[in-house]
């Protein structure tokens, strides 16, 4: 049976590809959503394949257990923001309608752990640099002046400011990185690779067919 043979070849080919590319299929979506945490806010960005922004799409946020915690709509730039209600991991699903859906998970490590501020009364073990402290000078100034409360407060403020600045700089970087990744669309290698695969398959089918014809002729 000729068609059975072709069907088997097609099936084997599909299975082979699923096995080979299996790992990447988990993230196989036509639309992409990208999310990051800035301070106590989640920012999301959604795009179609090729870079077109998805407007007015529904965004749903799920926690670790799959419980819905928030939902919203993307704006003109395909962006939306939510308060960070629960601790990561959080999954963000964008539903652009018409069967288009994509998701992104913010892992625990992406969000950063809340800072634990060490008070100078309980300083971190100094590295073996002859008992020299590596803390900023103003910290030791405060410590030597014996104003632990003021010190703690200042440190907290200091850390909060640093945190804010780093978040701000990182968010710009992240979104630039993301837009660069997504805009280029399909690759020439992929396109010609795909055409090559199809021609190859047609060749295999023709080969199987001609073998069968030869056998019938003998």
């Amino acid at each position: 049976m000729n068609f059975l043979r072709i069907a088997v070849i097609l099936l084997l080919f599909t299975c082979f590809n699923i096995i080979v590319f299996g790992a990447s299929l988990a993230h196989a979506h036509k639309i992409s959503v990208f999310a990051w945490v800035e301070g106590d806010t989640i920012h999301t960005q959604s795009k179609f394949y090729g870079g077109k922004k998805i407007k007015n799409a529904r965004i749903v946020i799920y926690d670790e257990t799959g419980k819905q915690i928030d939902e919203g709509i993307t704006d003109e730039n395909g962006e939306s923001s939510f308060p960070l209600g629960v601790k990561p991991p959080i999954t963000i699903v964008v539903d652009a309608g018409m069967g288009h859906q994509g998701q992104w998970t913010i892992e625990k490590s992406d969000a950063g752990e809340p800072l634990v501020v060490e008070t100078p009364a309980n300083p971190p073990p100094a590295p073996s640099t002859g008992g020299q402290s590596v803390e900023p000078s103003f910290v030791s100034d405060y410590a030597s002046n014996g104003c632990a409360d003021v010190c703690e407060e200042t440190l907290m403020q200091f850390y909060a400011v640093v945190d804010e600045i780093v978040d701000e700089k990182l968010s710009g970087m992240l979104s630039r990185l993301e837009s660069g990744q997504d805009k280029q669309g399909p690759d020439m290698t992929q396109i010609f690779g795909g055409i090559g695969y199809i021609f190859g398959l047609a060749g295999v089918a023709a080969y199987v067919h001609s073998r069968r014809q030869n056998r019938n002729n003998h």
């Binding site: 179609f48 407007k55 007015n56 055409i195 047609a202 023709a206 067919h209």
Partner: peptide
Amino acid sequence: DYEKIARVGILSSAFFIAALIHVNIGPSS
């Protein structure tokens, strides 16, 4: 049949490529 195999291959690649030509009119992609 034998005659059709090449045709199926070529038209299949045409379909494969056609989906890359995006028409950015209207609300969706």
